[in-house]
Each structure stands twice: as structure tokens, then as C-alpha cells.
């Protein structure tokens, strides 16, 4: 039995009120969306906020709608609603697939897109009870000074474990962050940083309000593959998201691959410009797989063998493109 630490609860109806609460209780407040990440983490005493601000009542954070050349998805849209949204399935099959691959049915009904994008990084030495962590002398990410993954490591390497992030990165999405000073939109590419302690640039006084995904042109193909121990419910041990824009003649205009769940930030595979103008055939896909494999070096931040996670990269790149071309 795991009890929550005590806190005061607030349920503002307006975004402005939520932002004011964040400001007022700065340093002692947490936002709760679906609660599927925050509640277990609070039960493990990873967070002990004095105040918790619920976002469920704020209607402007809900819903999926078209806006100009973008599909705008409210941060409080549940993962299940995202997974069964017909427009998402039609425009971004890889996003629908990633949403379907998150956790189990109950957690998908509860969890939200904004929550998934802001998911705390995960590590075998971090997602444990207070008793467990104390017995080990804590760790770099929380309460301690030592990293148990990288001996002598000074930088936390807990894994980014969100399924929607790599997909939205391949789709060129941006996020809107609201603060008492106004709103800013930043490309998702700039949202994540390679720091396992806090792997996003979101400020403590900001709320992620919506995600904007550019509606694709004809010829965009997308795919998502996820490696996990139990194929129905687990967090990813490796995720591979791919997107390729093909011209009318089938030649590649650009190709993007994002590999995640290995390090503290989803890794956008670099130097893929050379693939422009090539056909997306088996040889090209094999080369893309090798390019991704060369750039990724998983660590033992989760309890799954690192060698296996790395060797599955080219396999999953192949499967992701096979799914994309279906």
C-alpha cells in the first residue's frame, strides 16, 4: 500500500487561474493532468508538493481541431481519445499508433497528450520507493550525488520514455507554453534537452497548452515501432519513429528518424541530407537503419539489456518503414 504525501488541491476553471496558482506557490506546486505519471511518482516520494493544481476543469485545454494548415491538439486530450480520433488516424497514422502503444487501456483513458510530452524521465534507480532509494544512498536525479548507471557520471541519464514525443518530432510539431507573461510557441525539437533531471525547457511557471502538427502534403509516409518486454503494457525500451516525404516520382524529398527511450532526450538522427533524391527501397532503408545504429548508444538506465536495445534499432527502422509504406 502506497499512500500519497499530503497536499492542498486546487481545481481552477481558467488557464489564467492555474498560472496564478503556479506563480503563487512557486517551488511547492505540481500540475496534475491524468495523474498516471505524477501520482505513482508522488507515492514514491519523488515529488512532495504542498499544492497540486488539477487541469481537468480547464476547457480550453481539450479537443482536437484544424486551424489553418495545422491540426491543433489540446494538451488535456486523453491518449485514448487521440488514439481513436479519425482525423489523427487519417493524417498521422504513426501518431495514432504511438498513442495506441502507450501503457494499457485504463492508463490511456486517464493519461493526456500534454502529460505524455512532459513525462518525467525514467530510470531503474529512480522509479522506486523512498525506502528502496534510501537503501542505495539515493541517486543523482533525486536527493543524491552519485549516478548508479554511469560510474562517476555528473549528468543524469534517465530515459525519455514518452511514445508521442519521437513521433511528433518526425512530424515537425510545435508546442505552445503559457505563462503569466504570455504564450510562446516553440518547435518540439527545442523542447527537449539532454538532461535526465529535467529534460524539457518548460519553466516552473509555464503550462503546456497545445500541440500544433503541420498537416502533411501528399507523399508523406510515417511509421512507429516500439520495443518492450510485455508488448501490451510496458514503457518503451526503444522507440523508433520515422517520416519520409516522397515526391510524385517516389524519390525522397526528406527523411526523418527519431530514436528514443535510450537516453534522456529523444535523438533525432543527424546527417540524413544525403538520402535526398533516393528511392525508399530496401537498400536505402538498410542504410538508414545503420545510420541510426551508429548514432545511438543506450545505457543501463532501464532493466533491459542495452546490447539488445541497440541491435534492434536497424530492425525497428526497417519495420517502421515497412509499416509506413503499407
Amino acid at each position: 500500500m502506497l499512500t500519497l504525501p499530503p497536499f492542498e488541491y486546487h481545481a481552477p476553471m481558467e488557464l489564467a487561474d492555474a498560472l496564478a496558482l503556479l506563480q503563487k506557490h512557486a517551488g511547492k506546486v505540481k500540475l496534475i493532468a491524468g495523474g498516471t505519471d505524477l501520482v505513482p511518482n508522488m507515492k514514491h516520494r519523488l515529488f512532495m508538493p504542498e499544492h497540486v493544481v488539477g487541469l481537468k476543469q480547464i476547457s480550453e485545454l481539450n479537443g482536437v481541431r484544424g486551424e489553418g494548415g495545422f491540426l491543433v491538439i489540446g494538451a488535456m486530450t486523453s491518449i485514448a481519445d487521440l488514439a481513436r480520433n479519425p482525423r489523427v488516424a487519417l493524417l498521422f497514422p504513426s501518431l495514432a499508433r504511438a498513442a495506441t502503444a502507450i501503457a494499457g487501456p485504463q492508463l490511456r483513458e486517464m493519461g493526456t497528450l500534454g502529460g505524455n510530452l512532459c513525462l518525467d524521465t525514467r530510470c531503474v534507480y529512480y522509479n522506486q520507493t523512498h525506502f528502496w532509494r534510501k537503501a542505495l544512498g539515493y541517486c543523482l536525479k533525486k536527493d543524491g550525488t552519485v549516478c548508479h548507471v554511469v560510474k562517476g557520471g555528473q549528468k543524469c541519464v534517465a530515459a525519455a520514455s514518452n511514445d508521442t514525443a519521437p513521433v511528433l518530432l518526425t512530424l515537425g510539431a510545435s508546442v505552445e507554453l503559457a505563462s503569466p507573461n504570455g504564450r510562446r510557441a516553440i518547435p518540439l525539437e527545442e523542447f527537449y534537452v539532454a538532461d535526465g533531471v529535467a529534460n524539457t525547457v518548460i519553466e516552473p511557471n509555464e503550462i503546456l497548452t497545445k500541440v500544433r502538427v503541420p498537416i502533411p502534403r501528399a507523399g508523406l509516409v510515417t511509421g512507429y515501432q516500439k520495443l518492450r518486454i510485455r508488448a501490451a503494457i510496458d514503457y518503451p525500451s526503444l522507440c523508433v519513429a520515422v517520416a519520409a516525404q516522397q515526391q510524385a516520382d517516389g524519390k525522397l524529398e526528406w527523411v526523418r528518424m527519431v530514436i528514443s527511450a535510450l537516453g534522456s532526450k529523444p535523438h533525432t538522427v543527424k546527417r540524413l541530407e544525403g538520402f535526398q533524391g533516393r528511392a525508399l527501397d530496401a537498400a536505402t532503408i538498410a542504410e538508414l537503419g545503420q545510420a541510426a545504429h551508429r548514432q545511438c548508444h543506450p545505457l543501463t538506465n532501464i532493466n533491459v539489456e542495452t546490447g539488445w536495445r541497440r541491435e534492434m534499432i536497424p530492425v525497428f527502422v526497417r519495420r517502421a518503414f515497412a509499416e509506413a509504406m503499407k
Binding site: L2, A11, G35, P105, L107, M110
Partner: peptide
């Protein structure tokens, strides 16, 4: 039932507005 109490096992599943959700991760107040 109170099983893992942290969202792994599903023993606490209830329906909220007809949708299956985990009672162990839901705040009663919400």
C-alpha cells in the same frame, strides 16, 4: 482491490463515466 497501488496491475479498475480507469491513481476529489 488494492494490488500494486501504482498503476501496474489493474486490480483497482473502476468505470468513470463508463470508461475503465485505475482508482489507485485517481484522486477522489477529481
Amino acid at each position: 482491490k488494492q494490488g500494486c497501488d501504482k498503476g501496474d496491475c489493474g486490480a483497482c479498475t473502476v468505470l468513470i463515466d463508463g470508461k475503465p480507469m485505475l482508482a489507485c491513481l485517481s484522486l477522489a476529489i477529481e
